[in-house]
Structure formats: structure tokens, C-alpha cells
Amino acid sequence: MPAKIDYKKCIGCKRCYDLCPMDVFAIDKETEMPKPVYNEECWHCGICWMECPKRAIDITYPASMW
């Protein structure tokens, strides 16, 4: 799967939202936390995963790219 955020670790700094080269993330209006929305455009570059200050994001390859 593309980015999966562990909300137990996420502090809502929005770095993933700011930096994603394909703008995959959006900010949830209610929680004000980032969430991956345009998943079909994720190219699994790992920028969100490597930039997250709390290491709260997991990236794995989905079945269709395996």
C-alpha cells in the first residue's frame, strides 16, 4: 500500500502533506491531521516515510506492483 499513517505516532506536523511530490495527502477537516487521499497517484517514493519526524508512516508495495 502507499502511505499508511499511524495516528498514535502522528503529531500533525503536516510535513508529508507539504512535501509529497504528487500531492497525495489532504488535511482532514475535522481532525486536522494529514491523510493519504489520492492513493492511485502514489509512486512509492518514500519521501513522506523518510521525512516524518515521528517515523509514523509505513510504505509497502501493493499486490499490483509486487
Partner: peptide, 14 residues
């Protein structure tokens, strides 16, 4: 056979 992930390229798709 990309199903959803048609944006898989070596470089940033955009």
C-alpha cells in the same frame, strides 16, 4: 500490470 498505481515511474511522475 498496474491496477491503481499507474503513476509508477522511476522518476517523479509529475
Amino acid at each position: 500490470q498496474p491496477w491503481n498505481y499507474k503513476m509508477k515511474y522511476h522518476w517523479c511522475p509529475s
